[in-house]
Simulated assay, not measured.
Amino acid sequence: MKRLAVYCGSATPADPRYLELAETIGRDLAGRGIGVVYGGGRLGLMGAVAKGALDAGGEVIGVIPEALASAEVANHDCTELITVSGMHERKAAFTRLSDGFVTIPGGVGTMDELWEAVSWAQLGYHAKPVGLLNAFGFYDHLIAFIHHMAAVGFIRPAHQGIIIAEPELDLLLARMAAHVPHTPIFAMKSSDL
Rank of each mutant, 00 (worst) to 15 (best):
V102I: 13
T103G: 08
T103N: 03
P105C: 09
G106I: 05
G107P: 07
G107T: 11
G107C: 13
V108H: 12
G109D: 11
G109N: 10
G109I: 14
T110V: 15
T110I: 10
M111Y: 09
M111K: 07
D112V: 09
E113I: 02
E113V: 05
E113T: 07
E113K: 05
E113M: 09
L114Y: 01
L114T: 00
L114F: 01
W115I: 14
W115L: 14
E116G: 02
E116K: 04
A117H: 04
A117L: 02
S119Q: 15
S119F: 11
W120G: 03
Q122A: 06
Q122C: 03
Q122H: 08
Q122G: 10
L123P: 03
L123M: 15
G124C: 07
Y125M: 15
Y125L: 08
H126I: 13
H126Q: 11
K128Y: 09
K128C: 05
P129G: 09
G131W: 06
G131H: 06
G131V: 09
L132C: 15
L132S: 12
L132P: 02
L132W: 02
L133F: 12
L133Y: 01
L133R: 02
N134R: 04
N134C: 12
A135K: 01
A135N: 04
F136G: 06
G137W: 13
F138T: 04
F138Y: 15
F138V: 07
Y139A: 00
Y139I: 02
Y139D: 00
D140E: 12
D140C: 12
D140H: 14
H141K: 15
L142P: 00
L142D: 01
I143W: 02
F145E: 11
I146G: 04
I146P: 00
I146T: 08
I146L: 12
H147S: 10
H147W: 03
H148I: 02
M149H: 12
A151Q: 13
A151G: 13
A151M: 04
A151K: 13
G153W: 14
G153H: 11
G153V: 14
F154C: 08
F154H: 05
I155A: 13
I155L: 12
R156I: 09
A158L: 12
A158Q: 09
A158W: 00
A158G: 06
